[in-house]
Design a protein around this nucleic acid. Structure first.
Lengths: 335, 335
DNA sequence: GTGAAAGCGCTAACAG
DNA sequence: CTGTTAGCGCTTTCAC
């Protein structure tokens, strides 16, 4: 392993000078800098970040906590985060909590020493725990807001507006919202959002159950949707929408003929399925990038008050699971 | 931040003793050990792994390189790797190369100092580069074999046997293999495997193009499949199979009525689509866990010759995209 | 503008 | 069994 001393010796300077060439290049004389850098390259010298971190207190690492990497919604976010982190020479530790809220805080603790900050993506822990996590390590929240912690979220209210506008324009008068996990921050946002949107249009809304945010959750929702007599639903996320779509078709219910479906997320699957799912596309890589930006800003001036919350807007993608309501369906739904 | 000295002072012992309590508990007297550990817990002391690494030369981190986290095949592997790594108190740096072979080696270099070893998952680099990577950091390969590097792969030959057995039993006489990236190690394995399998059954095989291992790649493959006149195909992976399925249906070709499809991987989507894709399920989390085991074994005794290559077997999952050949289809295919 | 010295938190000889 | 000493690779005062 080639150390800073090897470079120093080869360049005929002191280790301090070599160090400065990397950390504050401008304060070392151009000529020596060139020489040192050239020799460093030639020797394939790479600063040991752990050693550097020991003294600077900065590791150059970021931690990323997320509930389930196998949920197709998350990989794109991870990619966005990684991309942006690498631009600033940060590495990222990814930790999958397997949807278990009880391990989250412990993981933050065990990672704290090795990272400069944590990005908590859709964390399931309670607000008080979140506040504690932020105490342990500088944290930024993704897809959630809590206290005055920095966060990047999406505008769920606007998203619901778009969904309801679309459905109302198609002629739907009675729609449903298939909700996800009871404790999901986004879920609550979407629920209150759709209530408002629906009121503005003077159409009626049914809340349908709480279901796991998975394909199987959507399958389980089918019965409730049918019983409610709605002509269209917005689902908590695409996975539920896809499961619902599949279960409905299995029962001979036509989509969008009998029931329209709008999902949220725009996961890759939604475009691949037939009929392709109409959905609200939430910016994924951008969210990730923004989260890193926020993190870096926080790290740069820990005390100063940075804009703590960024909000991104979703985009409605009309595909094949939405259409005007079927008159027959209306008959099934006596007002 | 509480250091080893704080604990030492509070316990009335030297830092070395505290250190030993964590690294070699058995050599310190039971009574003192208890006391030290209790105080450490009470103070919420956690060893600084970077500082430890500086002297032991072991970081407690593993690096994981993979081509594309958004490919639904990889998340499960990552989960398996993480799970097993955490059991041994290892953290893992995940790096997504965006399918760019040219950056792989560089990433290995830049990560080398911060990890004890690298897990290279479906690496796209050339064998010589792979050898070089292994020089830089202890490496284990996943889904690829090269030289005598430790690796965990799947038995592609057996997988192709299973696929062809299934298709032959159904009565297919002329099948196709839709191949993926030209330089994929697994792809070559599967190709030679299916040639053998087909020969054993006395049925004929068409190789159809090289396509990107994506849904769109599968869409692009549809024309070639139709032109070839085969009554069934095995695709390089599920994503291609799914794209093909979709494109075929768009053209009014019935699956499995007119053409049967067998994929490889068993990604979540394959079970969710209608008709659900018959596929060869490759063990994903187990592969990941095994890779970590191998890594740890290598790290424990770097010199000794460990069993370098583990091979896992796939399991055929018969779903709805395979059926006996349609007589009409046979007409389209004059022998 | 550059070097010498000190020390980040920890472990590894080496004594005792 | 435990304490002392030295030093991992690096950055950072502080002199010069």
């Amino acid at each position: 392993m080639v150390t800073i001393r090897d470079v120093a010796k080869a360049a005929g300077v002191s280790p301090s000078t070599v160090s400065r060439c990397f950390t504050q290049p401008e304060i070392v004389e151009a000529a020596t800098r060139e020489r040192v850098l050239r020799i460093a390259t030639h020797l394939d010298y790479r600063p040991n970040r752990a050693a550097r971190g020991l003294i600077t207190g900065r590791t150059g690492n970021l931690g990323l906590l997320l509930p389930d990497l196998a949920n197709p919604f998350f990989p794109s976010i991870v990619k966005g985060i990684q991309h942006q982190a690498h631009l600033s020479e940060y590495q990222v530790f990814v930790v999958d909590t397997n949807e278990d809220p009880t391990v989250e805080l412990g993981l933050v603790r065990s990672l704290a020493k090795q990272v400069d900050g944590m990005i908590l993506c859709s964390p399931r822990m309670r607000p008080a725990e979140l506040a504690e996590a932020a105490t342990i390590s500088p944290s930024v929240l993704v897809h959630r807001r809590a206290g005055s912690l920095p966060s990047v979220t999406i505008d769920n209210g606007d998203a619901m507006d778009q969904a309801v506008d679309h459905l109302a324009a198609l002629g739907h008068q009675h729609i449903g919202f298939v909700s996800g996990p009871r404790r999901s921050w986004s879920g609550r946002q979407r629920l209150t959002g759709i209530h408002k949107a629906v009121a503005a249009h003077g159409i009626s809304l049914d809340e349908i159950g709480h279901f796991a945010p998975t394909f199987d959750g959507g399958v389980a929702a089918a019965e409730g949707v049918l019983l409610s007599g709605v002509s269209a639903v917005v689902t908590y996320n695409d996975l539920i929408g896809l499961g619902l779509l599949s279960a409905l078709r299995d029962r001979g219910v036509d989509v969008p003929g009998d029931i329209s479906i709008v999902g949220v997320d725009d996961i890759p699957m939604s475009a691949m399925v037939q009929p392709a799912l109409t959905t609200l596309s939430v910016p994924k890589e951008p969210s990730g990038r923004l989260a890193v930006d926020l993190m870096l800003r926080v790290l740069d001036r820990p005390s100063s008050r940075v804009p703590p919350a960024e909000s991104l807007t979703c985009q409605l993608i009309v595909r094949q699971t939405t259409a005007p309501p079927n008159p027959r369906a209306a008959k099934r739904t006596p007002a």
